[in-house]
Amino acid sequence: MENTILKIVNLSAGFGKNWVLKNINLEIEKNKVIAIMGPSGCGKSTLIRCINRMHEITSGAILEGRIYLDGKDIFLMPPVAVRRKIGMVFQRPNPFPTMSIYDNVIAGYILNGIKLKREERDRIVEETLKKAYLWEEVKDVLYKRGVFLSGGQQQRLCIARALAMDPEILLLDEPTSSLDPKATSMIEELIIKLKKTVTVVLVTHNRAQAARVSDYTAFLYLGEIIEFDKTSRMFTAPKDKRTEEYLTGKFG
């Protein structure tokens, strides 16, 4: 594939003696939205947590295989460097409770001790919040704590926080599962707009969401990728019987 930004080769991962992911191979194209879809417990979260090397933090984590970012093996890079290039947003909105909205956006810089000039900080905060479609709602309360925002706003703040580091890839781990439908549709619109600047990997157990926002979909089942194809093709003409059964709601 041309324009490949991320290549996963023979990846297996799990906990203790239990392999959750079995021999995953996946190539992800730049500036696209890739949905990873599958029933609960199929290893979706584990898969994207491998991509930014968060899987290894868990005690008892096991891992085999290779992941290449722009052709470079991420397991040979320091985890800290990988995570700056590959941002992540979690299921539950988790802004830093001790920081203001402003500081939350540039938290990556603050926590890493990267000094920025005042104007530079202001610029990053404004630009990123605009990218995350949150600027209009919070521009007058920038110095209030982030935890006082609504759930959907908090989640967009977390997206802004990840975007502020200017990552190449943004991992979204079921970003709307704790949000109401309105907040969900705002996040979905945001995801579609984001692919201009960043490659998005979206984990979801919501088939409709995968269909709405993604260019490519990977169907993950029991730790294996059953099918990976253009979303439009997979949702209209799935090749594997299990994919078809999942899409028609026979399980999961």
Partner: peptide
């Protein structure tokens, strides 16, 4: 999850 948020921004353990 706060620790994870910090790690995901590339913050090292001590700073987290």
């Amino acid at each position: 999850y706060l620790k994870e948020a910090s790690f995901s921004l590339g913050t090292n353990y001590t700073r987290t």
